[in-house]
Design a protein around this nucleic acid. Structure first.
Lengths: 189, 189
DNA sequence: AAACTATACGGACCGTCAGTCCGTTTGGCG
DNA sequence: CGCCAAACGGACTGACGGTCCGTATAGTTT
Protein backbone atom coordinates (compact mmCIF):
# COMPACT_ATOMS: atom_id res chain seq x y z
CA UNK A 1 0.00 0.00 0.00
CA UNK A 2 1.34 3.35 -1.00
CA UNK A 3 2.31 5.81 1.71
CA UNK A 4 -0.27 8.43 0.82
CA UNK A 5 -2.99 5.81 0.71
CA UNK A 6 -2.09 4.64 4.19
CA UNK A 7 -1.99 8.17 5.49
CA UNK A 8 -5.40 8.89 4.02
CA UNK A 9 -6.81 5.71 5.43
CA UNK A 10 -5.79 6.73 8.94
CA UNK A 11 -7.04 10.21 8.38
CA UNK A 12 -10.44 9.00 7.24
CA UNK A 13 -10.79 6.59 10.14
CA UNK A 14 -9.84 9.30 12.62
CA UNK A 15 -12.25 11.82 11.11
CA UNK A 16 -15.08 9.32 10.99
CA UNK A 17 -14.43 8.41 14.60
CA UNK A 18 -14.57 12.03 15.66
CA UNK A 19 -17.76 12.70 13.73
CA UNK A 20 -19.59 9.62 15.01
CA UNK A 21 -18.54 10.39 18.56
CA UNK A 22 -19.93 13.89 18.24
CA UNK A 23 -23.17 13.00 16.47
CA UNK A 24 -26.46 12.23 18.16
CA UNK A 25 -27.46 9.76 15.51
CA UNK A 26 -25.55 7.66 12.96
CA UNK A 27 -27.22 9.15 9.95
CA UNK A 28 -26.32 12.65 10.90
CA UNK A 29 -22.90 11.74 9.56
CA UNK A 30 -22.77 11.64 5.79
CA UNK A 31 -19.94 10.30 3.68
CA UNK A 32 -19.37 13.82 2.38
CA UNK A 33 -18.95 15.04 5.94
CA UNK A 34 -16.35 12.39 6.61
CA UNK A 35 -14.46 13.10 3.39
CA UNK A 36 -14.42 16.80 4.11
CA UNK A 37 -13.34 16.36 7.72
CA UNK A 38 -10.59 14.00 6.64
CA UNK A 39 -9.42 16.40 3.96
CA UNK A 40 -9.77 13.86 1.16
CA UNK A 41 -12.07 13.44 -1.81
CA UNK A 42 -15.10 11.27 -1.68
CA UNK A 43 -13.66 8.87 -4.22
CA UNK A 44 -10.87 8.08 -1.80
CA UNK A 45 -13.35 7.00 0.84
CA UNK A 46 -15.14 4.61 -1.41
CA UNK A 47 -12.02 3.26 -3.05
CA UNK A 48 -10.59 2.35 0.36
CA UNK A 49 -13.66 1.07 2.18
CA UNK A 50 -16.04 -0.02 -0.55
CA UNK A 51 -19.15 1.52 0.93
CA UNK A 52 -20.53 3.14 4.03
CA UNK A 53 -20.89 -0.11 5.91
CA UNK A 54 -17.33 -1.06 5.03
CA UNK A 55 -16.06 2.13 6.59
CA UNK A 56 -18.16 1.68 9.70
CA UNK A 57 -17.00 -1.88 10.07
CA UNK A 58 -13.36 -0.89 9.68
CA UNK A 59 -13.73 1.72 12.38
CA UNK A 60 -15.55 -0.71 14.62
CA UNK A 61 -12.91 -3.38 14.22
CA UNK A 62 -10.16 -0.88 14.95
CA UNK A 63 -11.78 0.27 18.15
CA UNK A 64 -12.59 -3.27 19.18
CA UNK A 65 -9.00 -4.46 19.09
CA UNK A 66 -8.09 -3.20 22.55
CA UNK A 67 -11.17 -4.84 24.00
CA UNK A 68 -10.35 -8.05 22.23
CA UNK A 69 -6.84 -8.29 23.63
CA UNK A 70 -7.91 -7.48 27.15
CA UNK A 71 -10.35 -10.36 27.29
CA UNK A 72 -8.99 -13.83 26.75
CA UNK A 73 -10.35 -17.01 28.30
CA UNK A 74 -8.60 -18.23 31.39
CA UNK A 75 -9.04 -21.98 32.00
CA UNK A 76 -8.78 -21.54 35.74
CA UNK A 77 -11.43 -18.91 36.47
CA UNK A 78 -15.07 -19.90 36.69
CA UNK A 79 -16.85 -19.62 33.37
CA UNK A 80 -19.74 -17.60 34.72
CA UNK A 81 -17.42 -15.05 36.20
CA UNK A 82 -15.64 -14.61 32.89
CA UNK A 83 -18.91 -14.38 31.01
CA UNK A 84 -20.14 -11.59 33.24
CA UNK A 85 -16.87 -9.76 32.79
CA UNK A 86 -17.12 -10.12 29.04
CA UNK A 87 -20.67 -8.83 28.88
CA UNK A 88 -19.88 -5.95 31.15
CA UNK A 89 -16.96 -5.02 28.94
CA UNK A 90 -19.16 -5.16 25.86
CA UNK A 91 -21.76 -3.01 27.57
CA UNK A 92 -19.15 -0.42 28.44
CA UNK A 93 -17.87 -0.54 24.88
CA UNK A 94 -21.33 0.12 23.52
CA UNK A 95 -21.83 3.00 25.91
CA UNK A 96 -18.46 4.47 24.98
CA UNK A 97 -19.08 4.03 21.27
CA UNK A 98 -22.77 4.66 21.23
CA UNK A 99 -23.31 6.10 17.79
CA UNK A 100 -20.75 3.89 16.10
CA UNK A 101 -22.25 0.70 17.42
CA UNK A 102 -25.74 1.93 16.61
CA UNK A 103 -24.52 2.57 13.08
CA UNK A 104 -23.12 -0.91 12.81
CA UNK A 105 -26.01 -2.79 14.32
CA UNK A 106 -28.76 -0.85 12.63
CA UNK A 107 -27.09 -0.38 9.26
CA UNK A 108 -29.83 -1.09 6.79
CA UNK A 109 -28.84 -4.08 4.71
CA UNK A 110 -25.69 -5.04 6.57
CA UNK A 111 -26.46 -7.55 9.27
CA UNK A 112 -24.74 -6.91 12.60
CA UNK A 113 -23.87 -10.58 12.52
CA UNK A 114 -21.77 -10.54 9.37
CA UNK A 115 -18.86 -9.17 11.28
CA UNK A 116 -15.55 -10.71 12.25
CA UNK A 117 -15.66 -9.34 15.75
CA UNK A 118 -19.07 -10.84 16.41
CA UNK A 119 -17.82 -14.29 15.50
CA UNK A 120 -14.95 -13.85 17.88
CA UNK A 121 -17.10 -12.93 20.85
CA UNK A 122 -19.66 -15.53 20.03
CA UNK A 123 -17.08 -18.30 19.88
CA UNK A 124 -15.55 -17.19 23.15
CA UNK A 125 -18.88 -17.05 24.89
CA UNK A 126 -20.09 -20.32 23.46
CA UNK A 127 -16.98 -21.94 24.90
CA UNK A 128 -17.76 -20.57 28.33
CA UNK A 129 -21.35 -21.69 28.10
CA UNK A 130 -20.31 -25.18 27.06
CA UNK A 131 -17.82 -25.32 29.89
CA UNK A 132 -20.43 -24.31 32.43
CA UNK A 133 -23.42 -26.39 31.35
CA UNK A 134 -22.43 -28.67 28.53
CA UNK A 135 -22.62 -28.29 24.77
CA UNK A 136 -26.44 -28.47 24.61
CA UNK A 137 -27.61 -25.29 22.83
CA UNK A 138 -24.44 -23.50 23.89
CA UNK A 139 -24.33 -21.92 20.47
CA UNK A 140 -27.77 -20.37 20.75
CA UNK A 141 -27.31 -19.33 24.36
CA UNK A 142 -24.17 -17.46 23.39
CA UNK A 143 -26.12 -15.59 20.70
CA UNK A 144 -28.70 -14.79 23.31
CA UNK A 145 -26.19 -13.43 25.78
CA UNK A 146 -24.77 -11.14 23.13
CA UNK A 147 -28.25 -10.03 22.14
CA UNK A 148 -28.73 -8.98 25.74
CA UNK A 149 -26.27 -6.13 25.23
CA UNK A 150 -27.29 -5.08 21.74
CA UNK A 151 -26.69 -1.46 21.16
CA UNK A 152 -30.25 -0.44 20.56
CA UNK A 153 -31.35 -2.19 23.72
CA UNK A 154 -28.58 -0.36 25.55
CA UNK A 155 -29.86 2.80 23.93
CA UNK A 156 -33.42 2.02 24.97
CA UNK A 157 -32.29 1.58 28.57
CA UNK A 158 -29.87 4.46 28.44
CA UNK A 159 -30.89 5.96 31.76
CA UNK A 160 -30.36 2.84 33.78
CA UNK A 161 -27.64 3.22 36.40
CA UNK A 162 -24.71 0.87 36.21
CA UNK A 163 -25.96 -1.00 39.25
CA UNK A 164 -29.13 -2.00 37.50
CA UNK A 165 -27.23 -3.30 34.52
CA UNK A 166 -24.89 -5.12 36.82
CA UNK A 167 -27.80 -6.80 38.55
CA UNK A 168 -29.41 -7.71 35.27
CA UNK A 169 -26.30 -9.22 33.78
CA UNK A 170 -25.59 -11.14 36.97
CA UNK A 171 -29.11 -12.52 37.00
CA UNK A 172 -28.90 -13.48 33.35
CA UNK A 173 -25.49 -15.10 33.41
CA UNK A 174 -26.23 -16.65 36.77
CA UNK A 175 -29.29 -18.32 35.33
CA UNK A 176 -27.75 -19.48 32.11
CA UNK A 177 -24.28 -20.50 33.30
CA UNK A 178 -24.91 -21.20 36.97
CA UNK A 179 -24.06 -19.18 40.03
CA UNK A 180 -20.39 -20.12 40.25
CA UNK A 181 -18.58 -17.09 41.52
CA UNK A 182 -21.44 -14.63 41.69
CA UNK A 183 -23.12 -12.85 44.48
CA UNK A 184 -26.55 -14.33 45.17
CA UNK A 185 -29.20 -13.25 42.68
CA UNK A 186 -32.26 -13.63 44.86
CA UNK A 187 -33.96 -16.59 46.59
CA UNK A 188 -36.06 -18.99 44.47
CA UNK A 189 -39.67 -18.59 45.50
CA UNK B 1 -62.57 9.47 8.61
CA UNK B 2 -63.97 9.84 5.16
CA UNK B 3 -64.96 6.74 3.26
CA UNK B 4 -62.44 7.19 0.46
CA UNK B 5 -59.70 7.78 3.00
CA UNK B 6 -60.50 4.55 4.76
CA UNK B 7 -60.60 2.65 1.50
CA UNK B 8 -57.24 4.02 0.50
CA UNK B 9 -55.77 3.21 3.86
CA UNK B 10 -56.74 -0.43 3.48
CA UNK B 11 -55.50 -0.48 -0.05
CA UNK B 12 -52.11 0.91 0.92
CA UNK B 13 -51.70 -1.51 3.80
CA UNK B 14 -52.59 -4.42 1.59
CA UNK B 15 -50.24 -3.35 -1.19
CA UNK B 16 -47.40 -2.74 1.24
CA UNK B 17 -47.96 -6.14 2.78
CA UNK B 18 -47.82 -7.82 -0.59
CA UNK B 19 -44.67 -5.99 -1.60
CA UNK B 20 -42.83 -6.67 1.63
CA UNK B 21 -43.79 -10.32 1.51
CA UNK B 22 -42.43 -10.62 -2.00
CA UNK B 23 -39.22 -8.65 -1.46
CA UNK B 24 -35.88 -10.11 -0.42
CA UNK B 25 -34.92 -7.05 1.54
CA UNK B 26 -36.88 -4.22 3.17
CA UNK B 27 -35.30 -1.46 1.15
CA UNK B 28 -36.19 -3.05 -2.11
CA UNK B 29 -39.63 -1.64 -1.44
CA UNK B 30 -39.84 2.10 -2.00
CA UNK B 31 -42.68 4.35 -1.05
CA UNK B 32 -43.29 5.02 -4.73
CA UNK B 33 -43.64 1.28 -5.30
CA UNK B 34 -46.23 1.04 -2.58
CA UNK B 35 -48.18 4.04 -3.82
CA UNK B 36 -48.21 2.69 -7.34
CA UNK B 37 -49.21 -0.81 -6.26
CA UNK B 38 -51.98 0.61 -4.12
CA UNK B 39 -53.22 2.80 -6.95
CA UNK B 40 -52.93 6.01 -4.96
CA UNK B 41 -50.70 9.06 -5.07
CA UNK B 42 -47.66 9.37 -2.93
CA UNK B 43 -49.13 12.26 -1.01
CA UNK B 44 -51.87 9.98 0.22
CA UNK B 45 -49.34 7.60 1.72
CA UNK B 46 -47.58 10.29 3.68
CA UNK B 47 -50.71 12.09 4.77
CA UNK B 48 -52.09 8.89 6.23
CA UNK B 49 -48.98 7.36 7.80
CA UNK B 50 -46.65 10.30 8.37
CA UNK B 51 -43.53 8.61 7.11
CA UNK B 52 -42.09 5.29 6.06
CA UNK B 53 -41.68 4.03 9.60
CA UNK B 54 -45.23 4.99 10.38
CA UNK B 55 -46.48 2.88 7.53
CA UNK B 56 -44.32 -0.07 8.52
CA UNK B 57 -45.46 0.19 12.10
CA UNK B 58 -49.10 0.33 11.06
CA UNK B 59 -48.69 -2.80 8.99
CA UNK B 60 -46.80 -4.53 11.77
CA UNK B 61 -49.43 -3.71 14.35
CA UNK B 62 -52.18 -4.90 12.04
CA UNK B 63 -50.51 -8.23 11.48
CA UNK B 64 -49.65 -8.61 15.13
CA UNK B 65 -53.22 -8.36 16.33
CA UNK B 66 -54.05 -11.99 15.76
CA UNK B 67 -50.94 -13.06 17.60
CA UNK B 68 -51.79 -10.76 20.44
CA UNK B 69 -55.24 -12.15 20.96
CA UNK B 70 -54.12 -15.74 20.80
CA UNK B 71 -51.65 -15.32 23.63
CA UNK B 72 -52.98 -14.19 26.97
CA UNK B 73 -51.59 -15.11 30.35
CA UNK B 74 -53.27 -17.95 32.15
CA UNK B 75 -52.82 -17.87 35.93
CA UNK B 76 -53.01 -21.63 36.16
CA UNK B 77 -50.38 -22.79 33.68
CA UNK B 78 -46.70 -22.78 34.66
CA UNK B 79 -44.97 -19.53 33.77
CA UNK B 80 -42.07 -21.18 31.97
CA UNK B 81 -44.40 -23.13 29.75
CA UNK B 82 -46.23 -19.98 28.77
CA UNK B 83 -43.00 -18.13 28.15
CA UNK B 84 -41.77 -20.82 25.80
CA UNK B 85 -45.05 -20.74 23.96
CA UNK B 86 -44.87 -16.98 23.63
CA UNK B 87 -41.34 -17.01 22.29
CA UNK B 88 -42.13 -19.78 19.87
CA UNK B 89 -45.08 -17.80 18.59
CA UNK B 90 -42.93 -14.73 18.15
CA UNK B 91 -40.34 -16.76 16.31
CA UNK B 92 -42.95 -18.10 13.95
CA UNK B 93 -44.29 -14.59 13.43
CA UNK B 94 -40.84 -13.34 12.50
CA UNK B 95 -40.34 -16.20 10.10
CA UNK B 96 -43.73 -15.60 8.53
CA UNK B 97 -43.19 -11.86 8.28
CA UNK B 98 -39.49 -11.88 7.60
CA UNK B 99 -39.03 -8.74 5.55
CA UNK B 100 -41.61 -6.73 7.45
CA UNK B 101 -40.06 -7.43 10.83
CA UNK B 102 -36.60 -6.78 9.45
CA UNK B 103 -37.88 -3.47 8.19
CA UNK B 104 -39.27 -2.57 11.58
CA UNK B 105 -36.32 -3.68 13.67
CA UNK B 106 -33.63 -2.30 11.42
CA UNK B 107 -35.37 0.89 10.39
CA UNK B 108 -32.67 3.50 10.60
CA UNK B 109 -33.66 6.06 13.19
CA UNK B 110 -36.75 4.33 14.51
CA UNK B 111 -35.88 2.13 17.44
CA UNK B 112 -37.55 -1.27 17.44
CA UNK B 113 -38.39 -0.56 21.03
CA UNK B 114 -40.55 2.50 20.47
CA UNK B 115 -43.44 0.35 19.51
CA UNK B 116 -46.71 -0.38 21.23
CA UNK B 117 -46.53 -4.08 20.52
CA UNK B 118 -43.09 -4.40 22.05
CA UNK B 119 -44.33 -2.91 25.31
CA UNK B 120 -47.17 -5.36 25.32
CA UNK B 121 -44.98 -8.43 24.94
CA UNK B 122 -42.42 -7.12 27.33
CA UNK B 123 -44.95 -6.52 30.05
CA UNK B 124 -46.45 -9.95 29.56
CA UNK B 125 -43.10 -11.66 29.69
CA UNK B 126 -41.86 -9.63 32.64
CA UNK B 127 -44.93 -10.79 34.53
CA UNK B 128 -44.13 -14.40 33.79
CA UNK B 129 -40.51 -13.94 34.80
CA UNK B 130 -41.53 -12.30 38.05
CA UNK B 131 -43.98 -15.09 38.74
CA UNK B 132 -41.34 -17.73 38.18
CA UNK B 133 -38.36 -16.27 39.99
CA UNK B 134 -39.36 -13.07 41.73
CA UNK B 135 -39.23 -9.45 40.67
CA UNK B 136 -35.41 -9.20 40.77
CA UNK B 137 -34.29 -8.02 37.33
CA UNK B 138 -37.48 -9.43 35.78
CA UNK B 139 -37.65 -6.34 33.62
CA UNK B 140 -34.23 -6.86 32.10
CA UNK B 141 -34.65 -10.59 31.74
CA UNK B 142 -37.83 -10.01 29.75
CA UNK B 143 -35.94 -7.68 27.40
CA UNK B 144 -33.32 -10.37 27.04
CA UNK B 145 -35.82 -13.07 26.18
CA UNK B 146 -37.30 -10.89 23.47
CA UNK B 147 -33.85 -10.07 22.16
CA UNK B 148 -33.33 -13.80 21.77
CA UNK B 149 -35.83 -13.83 18.90
CA UNK B 150 -34.88 -10.56 17.24
CA UNK B 151 -35.53 -10.65 13.58
CA UNK B 152 -31.98 -10.21 12.41
CA UNK B 153 -30.83 -13.00 14.69
CA UNK B 154 -33.59 -15.16 13.26
CA UNK B 155 -32.36 -14.12 9.84
CA UNK B 156 -28.79 -14.96 10.74
CA UNK B 157 -29.85 -18.44 11.84
CA UNK B 158 -32.31 -18.85 9.01
CA UNK B 159 -31.24 -22.38 8.11
CA UNK B 160 -31.71 -23.80 11.57
CA UNK B 161 -34.41 -26.47 11.68
CA UNK B 162 -37.30 -25.91 14.00
CA UNK B 163 -36.00 -28.56 16.38
CA UNK B 164 -32.83 -26.62 17.00
CA UNK B 165 -34.77 -23.46 17.76
CA UNK B 166 -37.04 -25.43 20.00
CA UNK B 167 -34.09 -26.81 21.94
CA UNK B 168 -32.51 -23.39 22.21
CA UNK B 169 -35.64 -21.69 23.48
CA UNK B 170 -36.27 -24.49 25.94
CA UNK B 171 -32.74 -24.23 27.26
CA UNK B 172 -32.99 -20.47 27.57
CA UNK B 173 -36.38 -20.29 29.20
CA UNK B 174 -35.56 -23.31 31.32
CA UNK B 175 -32.51 -21.55 32.68
CA UNK B 176 -34.10 -18.20 33.25
CA UNK B 177 -37.54 -19.22 34.51
CA UNK B 178 -36.84 -22.69 35.85
CA UNK B 179 -37.62 -26.08 34.39
CA UNK B 180 -41.29 -26.24 35.35
CA UNK B 181 -42.99 -28.07 32.58
CA UNK B 182 -40.03 -28.64 30.30
CA UNK B 183 -38.08 -31.65 29.22
CA UNK B 184 -34.69 -31.86 30.94
CA UNK B 185 -32.01 -29.61 29.42
CA UNK B 186 -28.91 -31.57 30.38
CA UNK B 187 -27.25 -32.59 33.68
CA UNK B 188 -25.21 -29.99 35.59
CA UNK B 189 -21.57 -30.99 35.50
C1' DA C 1 -80.93 19.29 -5.57
C1' DA C 2 -77.75 22.92 -5.42
C1' DA C 3 -74.39 25.18 -2.97
C1' DC C 4 -70.74 24.86 0.12
C1' DT C 5 -66.63 23.45 2.69
C1' DA C 6 -63.60 20.58 5.03
C1' DT C 7 -61.18 16.74 3.76
C1' DA C 8 -58.60 14.13 0.73
C1' DC C 9 -56.24 13.43 -3.59
C1' DG C 10 -52.11 13.02 -6.79
C1' DG C 11 -47.97 13.62 -8.86
C1' DA C 12 -44.59 17.16 -10.03
C1' DC C 13 -41.06 18.86 -7.39
C1' DC C 14 -37.16 19.33 -3.93
C1' DG C 15 -33.08 18.32 -1.13
C1' DT C 16 -30.04 14.87 0.22
C1' DC C 17 -27.15 11.22 -0.02
C1' DA C 18 -24.58 6.93 -1.39
C1' DG C 19 -22.00 5.62 -4.88
C1' DT C 20 -19.55 6.28 -9.77
C1' DC C 21 -16.50 8.16 -13.30
C1' DC C 22 -12.73 9.95 -15.35
C1' DG C 23 -9.27 13.44 -16.11
C1' DT C 24 -5.31 14.67 -13.16
C1' DT C 25 -1.58 13.93 -9.84
C1' DT C 26 1.99 11.45 -7.54
C1' DG C 27 4.67 7.87 -5.09
C1' DG C 28 8.10 4.72 -5.91
C1' DC C 29 11.07 2.06 -8.83
C1' DG C 30 14.42 0.90 -12.47
C1' DC D 1 15.29 11.18 -14.71
C1' DG D 2 11.47 9.07 -16.75
C1' DC D 3 7.85 6.02 -16.44
C1' DC D 4 3.35 4.22 -14.99
C1' DA D 5 0.51 1.84 -11.76
C1' DA D 6 -1.72 3.48 -8.01
C1' DA D 7 -4.15 6.93 -5.92
C1' DC D 8 -6.61 11.22 -5.96
C1' DG D 9 -10.76 14.42 -5.98
C1' DG D 10 -14.90 16.36 -6.87
C1' DA D 11 -18.43 16.95 -10.38
C1' DC D 12 -22.05 13.99 -11.64
C1' DT D 13 -25.83 10.47 -11.42
C1' DG D 14 -29.82 7.95 -9.89
C1' DA D 15 -32.86 6.94 -6.40
C1' DC D 16 -35.42 7.89 -2.62
C1' DG D 17 -38.06 10.07 1.28
C1' DG D 18 -40.77 13.72 1.98
C1' DT D 19 -43.41 18.28 0.60
C1' DC D 20 -46.60 21.34 -1.78
C1' DC D 21 -50.45 23.05 -3.83
C1' DG D 22 -53.91 23.14 -7.35
C1' DT D 23 -57.79 19.99 -8.11
C1' DA D 24 -61.56 16.79 -6.92
C1' DT D 25 -65.03 14.99 -3.95
C1' DA D 26 -67.63 13.26 0.34
C1' DG D 27 -70.82 14.72 3.22
C1' DT D 28 -73.70 18.31 5.06
C1' DT D 29 -76.65 22.23 5.20
C1' DT D 30 -80.45 24.93 3.47
Amino acid sequence: MRADALRNRESVLAAAGRLFDAAADPDQVSMDDIATAAGVGKGTLFRRFGDRIGLIRALYEQRGLRLRDSLAVSPTRPAAEQAVELLRAMLRFKLDNRVLTLALESAGGGSPYRNEAYDHWHALLAGLVAEARGPQAADYLAHTLLAAVRSDLVEHLRDWPESRWHAGLNALVGSVLGHDGQSPAGPPG
